[in-house]
Design a protein around this nucleic acid. Structure first.
Length: 867
RNA sequence: GGGGACGUGGUGGAAUGGUAGACACAGCAGACUUAAAAUCUGCAGGCGAAAGCCGUCCGGGUUCGAGUCCCGGCGUCCCUACCA
């Protein structure tokens, strides 16, 4: 009996699949239902890691399963290829971003192909290819025509040394992550997409996504942050400041507490504050003080409330004689609502902190149920619960919600404002002052202003001849690229040198896969057939930005007629990370000296698992299980694992030990176990006598029946586990079945058992195929089946065989298991009752007590209540 | 501060309200071997010689029956954050 050698069989079968073109997606239609499986496409960083292996294996399990179930499956792969790491590499190593990116893609493609994924590589593309980003420019211009794209000034984090804009996460302690220079706030005119136009629809759409995790839907809902309230304007008590003749606009979700107002607050960068600062150095100094302080969590958390009375007053909307002071306050955000609030200290904690600090009045207007209006007071904790409104004239006695409605109605009647819905979501700034991205297809002409690049001049291609030896955007200093003539007037014009946020690239690639060579951005017919993606799989870290942008862009493309669906991903699955134990040198607990797993060996000491350096015997401490990272040195390289155990073992292991949505604990022992399964499974296939000797009319005996039942139960269980994304349970069943199979050795077996084994092994080969596809092919040949396992249909189970006909039911007395009875499935209650009461173990516990009740759950359990 | 998830052996985990701990890792014992590795077989929640008792973070509750449902704690992790 030959030992199974994955090194020999695996490349052979990948070549066979490739040669037969089995994963090239057939044309649309053809009678089969379609199924689109997509894993979030990778950034070509250089090498694949175990996270990729797990992610793409999960997608492949689904894709191969659906293929076998008779679906027309689309399972493509591409590259999210624009982005900063390429520019960083250019600056650090003098390589060109393009060369670096494509070299990485070549390397990673080879690695991914080694995983034996059922991917249609003919649809592959990279977002940095003009054939892709040129189409992106085309639809960007379409959105511009419909007004979804606009320009406005916005603040950015500016690194004065690198002369570049930084994302928030690149600002560390107020300094640029690379240069270490103190970051400045700068205002730049930038391009924005009106995602806020779709805020409501994006929230409503979440309700239709019943195959998305609740967690992700909730995160998106919170991110969009819809709140209903009242927007209104205070009238000035004195002369109106310039440009604010219509009053001071505020937004509130608690109009019911208007009679508890004690001040009005504005943000430090509110137009009124800026106006006052320009006129008064004291105000200017205060505003500057507010701006100091970092934006980190800790800074905000500990930041004290700061305020300054402007000396200006406004009139309370419900009482012309009531004047409220206007304060500048550091805790008010200019970007949310109107950048101004009315402060109600009794019922808002921030307002209360502020009022206590500056001795402003605190007037409760919501009385908690059961509290005495004469005695109720707010000390240092604002009351935000339910209750009845008091101290509030026309609202007195109302509950909170009716009071809100009453206040809004009154304000609207006065013509001072209206009920309004406000979102936390901001418009999407897509300009990036970088080279390695999709050029924004726009020109600036002195005479004509902003001019879109005409469609026939697309794509606007990135120039290759750029340098990274000096800081700043290479496009800006390129000698010729930006200088063009205006397509409208023929005069001199300049190109936009900003490129698009790479999230734009990943917001529509799933639609491009429907036909990656289409002349239009999207081949409508192909997209109509394939979209939405039936199963999207990726990391939960994309739960908000990527998935929200993709949902938005899909809607926008629908509105310009390029797509027919509003939701791109009908099903979403978010998989967990890959973790690994850490190891460090003994005695370095305070500042651990990490040791990589490759040099570690394990041994047992007093029944405990210990670690040491294999070469030297130096003792090591086994640390926590953490996300694989270079800094902790707890990574393992997929290529090493594949070389040692084979692809099938690696694939099997990454989906076997934890539920897919949870973090996965990589271990050497674990992958060895998966490798053992592969070779033991092969041994069972190999032990089966060739088909001819069994014969078809083998009949049946109790042994063969038992095996057949186990087989059909397995088919049912594995199918259900894949459908339900419980791969770990399905694989456990496969392991279990292999153990069962050992109880039915081929040697010396009856013809009936040999036949039952043949049925079992044929099914087993197909059931393991999504996980260990190479082994499945090898087994398929060994079993004498025709064709390839990859083309074999998923086995069907016989419901009659998948359920037991003889059952062993536990019998409980007062909830404790005391015995068991053997009954036929569906046995009559009276018979079961009699058997249960007669059981010896049960009898012991019924001595001296009276049976009060017997609960029989059909085919499940019997519980006897006695006392 | 707000929102969410989770808490089961030494470990990862399994269990439509119905026999808790499937399956695997680590461990232990045995077989094979001159020996080791590999492989195979077996044991294995705790206490107990056994019968049995106790066991799913803690405390209550619902139920014939709770890991699972409800209420109140504690703990861990994730997201979000001066969002009016």
């Amino acid at each position: 009996m030959a030992r199974y050698d994955p090194k020999e069989t695996e490349p052979k079968w990948r070549a066979a699949w490739d040669g037969a073109g089995v994963f090239t997606t057939p044309a649309e239609g053809g009678g089969k239902p379609k199924y689109y499986v997509l894993e979030m496409f990778p950034y070509p960083s250089g090498r694949i890691h175990m996270g990729h292996v797990r992610n793409y294996t999960m997608g492949d399990v689904v894709a191969r399963y659906k293929r076998a179930k008779g679906f027309n499956v689309l399972h493509p792969m591409g590259w999210d290829a624009f982005g900063m790491p390429a520019e960083n590499a250019a600056m650090e190593r003098g390589v060109h971003p393009k060369g670096w990116t494509f070299a990485n893609i070549d390397g990673m493609r080879d690695q991914l192909k080694q995983l034996g994924l059922s991917i249609d590589w003919s649809r592959e593309f990279a977002t940095c290819e003009p054939q892709y980003y040129g189409k992106q420019q085309a639809w960007f211009l379409k959105l511009m025509e419909t007004g979804l794209v606009y320009r406005k000034e916005a603040q950015v984090n500016w690194d004065p040394v690198d002369m570049t804009v930084l994302a928030n996460e690149q600002v560390i302690d107020g300094k640029g992550w690379r240069s270490g220079a103190v970051v400045e706030k700068r205002k730049l005119t930038q391009w924005f997409l009106r995602i806020t136009d779709y805020a409501d629809d994006l929230i409503e759409g979440l309700k239709t996504l019943d195959r998305w995790p609740d967690k992700v839907r909730l995160m998106q809902e919170n991110w969009i942050g819809r709140s209903k309230g009242l927007r209104f304007s205070f009238n000035w008590a004195g002369p109106a400041p310039e440009g604010l003749e219509d009053g001071l606009a505020v937004y509130t979700t608690r109009p019911d507490t208007l009679f508890g107002a004690s001040f009005v607050g504005i943000a430090p960068d509110h137009p009124l504050a800026e106006q006052l600062a320009a006129a008064d150095p004291r105000v200017a100094a205060f505003v500057a003080e507010c701006r100091k302080g970092g934006t980190s969590e800790a800074d905000i958390e500990g930041a004290p409330k700061l305020g300054m009375d402007t000396g200006i007053s406004v009139v309370h909307p419900f009482d012309p004689d009531w004047k409220l002071p206007v304060w500048i306050a550091n805790f008010i955000l200019s970007e949310y609502g109107t950048g101004a609030i009315f402060g109600c200290p009794a019922h808002d904690q921030r307002d209360l902190d502020f009022a206590r600090k500056y001795n402003l009045p605190v007037t409760p207007v919501v009385l908690p149920n059961g509290a005495d209006p004469a005695e109720f007071q707010v000390e240092n904790e604002a009351y935000v619960g339910p209750g009845k409104i008091f101290n509030s004239k026309f609202m007195d006695g109302l509950e909170v919600e009716p009071a809100k409605a009453a206040a809004i109605e009154r304000i609207e009647a006065q013509g001072q404002g209206e009920g309004a819905t406000v979102y936390r979501l901001r418009d999407w700034g897509v300009s990036r002052q970088r080279y390695w991205g999709c050029p924004i297809p726009v020109l600036y002409c002195d005479a004509c202003g902003v001019v879109p690049v005409p469609a026939d001049q697309l794509p606007v291609v990135l120039p290759d001849d750029v340098t990274f030896d000096v800081p700043g955007n290479p496009l800006l200093r390129h000698p010729t690229w930006r200088h063009v003539s205006c397509p409208t007037c023929g005069g001199p014009a300049e190109r936009e040198t900003d490129t698009l946020d790479t999230f734009m690239d990943s917001s529509w690639y799933f639609a491009r896969f429907a036909d990656p060579h289409a002349t239009e951005p999207v081949n409508k017919a192909a997209a109509d057939y394939w979209l939405p993606v039936d199963q999207y799989i990726g990391g939960v870290e994309h739960a908000i930005l990527h998935l929200l942008y993709a949902r938005f862009v899909t809607r926008a493309l629908k509105d310009v007629g390029l797509l027919s669906v509003a939701e791109p991903f009908a099903g979403l699955f978010t998989q967990g990370m890959v973790n690994h134990e850490t190891y460090f040198q003994a005695g370095t607990d305070a500042r651990p000296v990490w040791v990589e797993p490759a040099v570690v060996e394990f041994y047992a000491e007093a029944g405990q698992r210990r670690a040491r350096v294999a070469a030297t015997g130096e003792p090591l401490v086994i640390g926590d299980v953490e996300k694989m990272s270079k800094s902790k040195k707890n990574t393992v390289a997929p290529e090493d694992i594949i070389a040692a155990y084979g692809v099938d073992a690696a694939r099997l292991f990454v989906v076997s030990d934890s539920p897919p949505e949870r973090d996965f604990h990589w271990s050497t022992g674990g992958v060895e176990g998966a490798g053992r399964f592969v070779s033991r499974a092969w041994n069972e296939f190999d032990a089966q006598p060739s088909a001819g000797s069994a014969g078809m009319a083998a009949g049946s005996d109790p042994k063969s029946d038992e095996l057949r039942r186990a087989t059909h139960k397995l088919i049912k269980a594995v199918g259900e586990s894949i459908e339900g994304f419980k791969f770990n349970s399905g694989i456990a069943k496969l392991y279990e079945f292999l153990n069962i199979l050992k109880g039915f050795p081929a040697e010396g077996a009856s013809a009936a058992v040999i036949a039952a084994r043949a049925e079992a092994l044929s099914a087993f080969a197909r059931l393991i195929a999504p996980f260990t596809p190479h082994l499945a092919e090898e087994a398929w040949v060994r079993l004498g089946e025709t064709g390839m396992a990859v083309d074999a249909p998923w086995p069907e189970y016989d419901p009659g065989l998948a359920a037991d006909s003889e059952l062993v039911l536990p019998v409980q007395v007062n909830g404790k298991r005391r015995g068991e009875v053997h009954v036929a499935k569906g046995a009559a209650e009276a018979d079961v009752r009699q058997l249960a009461l007669a059981d010896a173990g049960v009898q012991v516990h019924l001595a001296g007590v009276t049976v009060r009740k017997v609960i029989i759950v059909q085919d499940r359990i019997i519980n006897i209540v006695a006392n």
